[in-house]
Computed example of a mutant assay.
Amino acid sequence: MAYENLLTEQKDRILYITINRESKLNALNRQTLQELNKAITAAIADQSVGGIIITGAGNKAFVAGADIAEFAGVDQQGGTAIAREGQSNVFDLIANSGKPIIAAVNGFALGGGLELAMACHIRIASDNAKMGLPEVTLGLIPGYGGTQRLTQLVGRGKALEMILTADMVTAEQALQSGLVNAVVPQTELLAKAEEMTAKILSRAPLALAAAIRSVNAAATDGVNGFETEITEFGQCFSTADFKEGVDAFLNKRKPLFTGK
C-alpha cells in the first residue's frame, strides 16, 4: 500500500516503517497517525511479517513531536478526543502488538515522538539522539501515554523530572536510566535494530506474543500479571512450537518454529 507520509519496505520477515516528513522533522500530524494505524494493523494481520522496525527519515529526527499547528483552536473536548484516538489507534496498538516492534531512534525524539518510541517494545538509539517530553512549555502535558510509559521505564522521580523541567536527555543518559536498550553510532543504527529483530524472530512466534502480553499485564490496572503469566505459560504447552522446541533441545539441534 502506498502512503503519503510513510515509507514501508519488507525484507524477509521484517517490515520497515519510515516516517517520511523530513522537512517537518517527521512530526506526527493527523494523517501520519492514520497511516501508522493502517500500516501497523496490516502488518499485524500479515503472516509474512514477523516484526517491525519504526524509524524516521533523515539524520535530524526520529519524530520531533506532534504537529502543533493542528492543535490551534482546539477546545477541551477536542483535546480529549485527540489523546484518546491517538492512544487507541496508534500507541496502544503498537504496545499491544503480539509481533515485536522496535524503534530505531535517530536524532530528536520529542513529545509524541518519544511517546511513539516508548510504545514500541524495544528502543535502539543513535549516539546523537536527544529525547524529551517538552509539552509543559506549551501549556500541555504528554497525551499519548507519555506520563504512564515514561514512569514505567525510568521510575516516578526521573519521569517527573523530565516532564516538569521539559529538559532533553542524551542517548547515553537515556541508556543509563533504562529509557533505551542500546546506543550505537548513527551509521550502525538500522543494522543494530535489524540484528536484534532477527534474533527475536528466531524464537517461537506464539511464545513471543505470550511474553509481550504477560509483560504488558504488569502495568495494566485490574489485571493480575502473575495470573496472566500462568495462563500464557500453560497455553504454550498446547502449541506445536513448544513440542518442536523441546524436541530440538533434547536432540541438540536448532528448532524450526512455525507459529502453530
Rank of each mutant, 00 (worst) to 15 (best):
A109H: 04
A109V: 11
A109W: 10
L110P: 08
G111E: 11
G112S: 09
L114W: 06
E115V: 09
E115T: 07
E115I: 06
L116V: 10
M118I: 13
M118L: 15
A119N: 04
C120F: 04
C120D: 08
I124F: 02
A125E: 04
S126N: 13
P142W: 04
Y144T: 02
Y144H: 06
G145V: 02
G145A: 03
G146N: 07
G146A: 01
T147Y: 11
L150Y: 06
L150N: 09
T151S: 09
Q152G: 15
L153A: 15
G155D: 12
K158G: 03
M162E: 13
L164E: 11
D167K: 14
D167W: 05
M168Q: 15
M168H: 10
V169P: 02
V169K: 08
T170Y: 03
A171G: 13
Q173I: 00
Q173N: 05
A174C: 07
S177I: 06
N181T: 11
T187I: 13
L189A: 11
A191K: 11
A193W: 00
E195C: 11
M196H: 00
M196K: 00
T197E: 13
S202A: 12
P205K: 08
L206V: 04
A207P: 10
A207Y: 06
L208M: 13
I212L: 03
S214Y: 12
A217K: 07
T220M: 12
D221L: 14
G222Q: 04
N224L: 02
